[in-house]
Structure formats: structure tokens, C-alpha cells
Write a protein that binds this DNA or RNA. Structure first.
Lengths: 188, 188
DNA sequence: CCACTAACGCAGCGATCAGTGCGATAATTT
DNA sequence: AAATTATCGCACTGATCGCTGCGTTAGTGG
């Protein structure tokens, strides 16, 4: 054995259980008004015994964080359109479309409400993707900009509309947002 | 009697109970990691019988929405500094300071997680205040701008940082945000 | 001051939740 | 293929939640 105490076993049955539980959380959040989301309810929906959830995740907060991390982490490679504007517009429009989905939004809300680390789990990967796009532009020799400010001005308004206003942003609006942001970079 | 069916009685004991319950919710959210926030726990902390909470609010979601609405609704009159930039900087800095408070943030997270209308309850009054500032500038004959876009570019990054990143924004950064936003208005 | 009734406290009842041993299953290593 | 053990299912228990009649207190209008 490699380690004496902690040896994980991710294959086979465990993976199926994990997938079923994740799907159950998404389904329940899409249907109910949340608040009723409890470990036994998730277990019943997933066809898994409640004990399993108590052992593997312990609480709904940790389960939600886990689900959100998986859901909002896609290994997609942002297509190279040749320009920073093109890359950002394509990417932010996709993000806008994703966030505009009511079910996705329900998962985000619940995750945010589960604890202080919930919000980070929702956007961690987005920041990575944004950094990759900006890095590519720098390698291209184009305009250099800060990842922080880009996140503030692009993701900020997008997620604000999704979480705090009744109607989320559209993909078209996201593209306009990119144009506006890039304009501010050229005219300091 | 004025009305036959719905006669509210807001004075005296009811007001005290309401205040105690609101304070209890704020305290519990500040201490615990949420999730444990249940009607009986709030009742115990407030020194009120749980039955009262079930009757007046019904669920934690409605209670949180009520608390958030009260907490984020201040009848403050934004001081007239003479210019749009001054008004916005003063106001947004105050908002940033408020949102940077961990206890306030905990209330916001919990309210967002309680239901789709939770986010709106947190920023409803901010939008009203912002509209008042912009309206004053128009009466002054100054630059006209849209409340929607102002909310997107000012409140958006601010609340995004508060909810989705580990470290919330500072008052100074909020002032810089106003400057940047006003610059984009002058250079289309 | 008196009548009216909204709002609160009390006692108690299912239902469900959170958690714990223990045996069974199956993923992983040798 | 056999041994090891991480992981899951089952049965069970104490605690708590959500909720409901019923009597009491106290705010409100006459």
C-alpha cells in the first residue's frame, strides 16, 4: 500500500453514487424552493442510503460546495478567435447563457447560502479561464490587462444581475459589456 | 373599525417581538455557520415562543427576506455634495463599508440562499437611492445617465467581490470605481 | 374606562433528521 | 486469484422540527 491511513477509492460504485447524488441535488434544487433540501431527501432521490451522505459529505453545505465545484468546473479550452475582444465576447456570452439558466441559478443561490466559501466555488474556474484568455493575449503581444479588474467589470455585472435582479443578463448584453470594457482600456 | 378582516396591530409588544427576532437572526448568522438557522433556534435566542415565529413568518425564507428588507432599507438622505461624482463616491463608499462587514455579508448570503427573491430584497433600496442621486443630477442640469447601467457598473463589481471573492471591496476602491465609471460616460 | 380581538404563550403530537454499530459488498493491491 | 479494506446498506435511537388547539395577555377603537 502507498499510504497507511488515507487511501481513497474513486472508481466503480463510489463514482456512480457520487454522480447520482450530484444529479439528485441538481434535480431537487430545480424543482423545489430549496430550504427543503436535506440529506435524507437527497439520498431518497438518488436511490442511495442516507448514511452514505452523512459519511461522505457530513452536511448539506459541504455537499453543495462539492456539487458546485464540479458543476462550474469545465475543462473546456476557450477557442482562439485571434483577438482579445473575440475571445472575451465568445467566452462571456457562454458564461451569460449558463448563468441565465434557472436551474443553474438555483444551484448558485443555494451554494452561496451554504457558507462563506460557497461563492468562491462558483466562480473559481471562471477566474482561471479568464486568466488563460488574458495570458494568451499577452503571449500574442497584445494589450495587457489585469485579471482582477477584468473579473470586476465583466463577471461583476453579469453575476450581479443574475443573483440580485429578477432578470439575468443575456448573451448579447455580455458581448456589449466586453466592448465597453475594452474601450475603457484604450482611453485612460 | 376601518376594515373587517385585516386589522394589523404593529405597536407595543408586537414591535418588541419583531425587533427581538430580527436581532436574534442577525446574531445567530454572525456566530454560527448558518445552516443551523431554524425557527426554534431563533425563537430561543430571541426569548420568544417558537409558535409566534411559525404564525407570523411561517418559514425561515420569509423571515430572512423580512430581516434583509429591514436591514438594507435605510431612510437616509444622500447628502448633496454639489456634483454627481461627489454624491456617487460618498454613497458607494458607504455601501462598500456596509457590505464589507462580515455580519452583514452573512445575512446577505443566507437571504440569497433562501429563495429567488432573496437577492432583490438586499439591493432594492440601493437601487432607489441610486435613482435618487441620478435624478438629482438631472434636476441640476448635469450629465444624464441610466440607472440600470449605473447599477451594473457600480453595484455589480462591489457586490460581486463581496459575495464571490474571499476579500470584499474597500471604500477607497469604490471611489475609484465611480471615477472609472464616470470616465466611460464622457468618452463614448 | 370598557369591549373587542389581534398576537402571544403553553402543552403536546407526529414526522423527520442527524448520527451510530455492524455486517455485506466490491474496488484495489499483491 | 486471494487478501485487504474502503465504501455502502441496514436497523435502530435520541433529538429536534414543523405544526395545531386552546387559554391568556395586551394593543386598539369606541
Amino acid at each position: 500500500m502507498a499510504d497507511s491511513s488515507t487511501q481513497v477509492r474513486p472508481g466503480g460504485r463510489s463514482a456512480k453514487v457520487r454522480a447520482a447524488v450530484h444529479r439528485a441535488v441538481a434535480e431537487l434544487l430545480a424543482e423545489e424552493e430549496a430550504e427543503t433540501l436535506t440529506l435524507p431527501s437527497v439520498a431518497t432521490r438518488a436511490g442511495v442510503h442516507p448514511t452514505t451522505l452523512y459519511r461522505r459529505w457530513g452536511s448539506i453545505a459541504q455537499l453543495l460546495t462539492d456539487v458546485a465545484s464540479s458543476r462550474f468546473t469545465d475543462d473546456l479550452v476557450v477557442p482562439d478567435s485571434g483577438s482579445l475582444a473575440g475571445d472575451l465576447q465568445r467566452w462571456l456570452a457562454d458564461v451569460a447563457t449558463d448563468v441565465a439558466d434557472p436551474d443553474t441559478l438555483a444551484l448558485m443561490r443555494a451554494t452561496i447560502g451554504s457558507g462563506p466559501a460557497g461563492g468562491c466555488a462558483c466562480v473559481e474556474d471562471r477566474h482561471r479561464q479568464l486568466a488563460a484568455i488574458i495570458q494568451r493575449e499577452q503571449d500574442r503581444g497584445g494589450t495587457a490587462t489585469d485579471v482582477e479588474s477584468a473579473a470586476d467589470f465583466l463577471l461583476g455585472p453579469l453575476y450581479y444581475r443574475a443573483v440580485f435582479t429578477p432578470e439575468p443578463a443575456t448573451a448579447d448584453w455580455a458581448r456589449t459589456l466586453v466592448t465597453t470594457y475594452l474601450a475603457t482600456l484604450n482611453t485612460p
